[in-house]
Amino acid sequence: MTEQNYKNHRKFYPPHHFIYLPLLIALEIYGIYKIWDDAGNQLTWVLFSIVIFLLFYLAFMTRQHYALGLQNRMVKLEFKQRYFEISGQRSDEIADQLTFDQIAALRFAYDDEFKELLNKVLQKNISGDEIKRSIKNWRADNQRI
């Protein structure tokens, strides 16, 4: 496995992203094409296209909703635990000042940079993407969903 960094930290699930969703997209395109090509069965192809679109939407949203919802909760808990371990103080007030994007970006920094970047975020309110770009020594997260 290659070393994780800003450019390659996104993750794909091949059966979902490269087989199931493209297949649904192809079926949707085919259904829309058949609406105009097969005038005798136009209503059937409209219904077919609607069903395929709903399957695509449901597959996309369900996967995103459950996985990201759980992952976001864990990222916030990880931030609170890490902040406590580094500072010895509760993080409730600090966590309330940060967006989720900022909290998520901070997890890619090792402890020495974490403190520096957290102070920078609190003072200048930089975005999560700016935090990621500022990390000098990337801390890989290979267990994301």
Rank of each mutant, 00 (worst) to 15 (best):
M1S: 12
T2C: 07
E3H: 11
N5C: 10
Y6H: 06
Y6A: 05
Y6L: 15
N8S: 05
R10C: 05
F12N: 02
F12Y: 09
P14W: 07
I19M: 09
I19T: 10
Y20M: 11
Y20F: 14
L21P: 00
P22D: 07
P22M: 00
L27A: 10
E28T: 10
I29G: 02
I35R: 01
D38P: 06
A39C: 02
A39V: 06
T44Y: 10
T44W: 00
T44F: 13
V46A: 09
V46P: 06
L47S: 12
F48Q: 01
I50A: 10
I50C: 04
I52F: 01
F53A: 12
L55V: 11
L55I: 12
F56C: 00
F56Y: 13
T62Y: 13
R63W: 10
R63D: 13
Q64V: 11
L68A: 05
G69F: 04
L70K: 15
Q71N: 09
N72T: 09
R73N: 14
K76T: 08
K80P: 00
K80E: 15
Q81P: 06
F84D: 01
F84Y: 12
F84A: 05
E85A: 13
S87Y: 03
Q89G: 03
I94N: 05
A95D: 10
D96I: 00
T99S: 15
D101Y: 08
Q102S: 08
Q102P: 04
F108R: 04
F108M: 05
Y110N: 11
Y110W: 12
E113H: 04
L117A: 00
K120Y: 04
L122W: 04
L122Q: 09
Q123G: 00
K124D: 15
I126V: 01
S127Q: 02
D129T: 12
D129W: 15
E130D: 14
E130L: 03
I131T: 02
N137Y: 12
W138M: 07
W138F: 15
W138S: 05
R139Y: 00
A140M: 07
A140F: 05
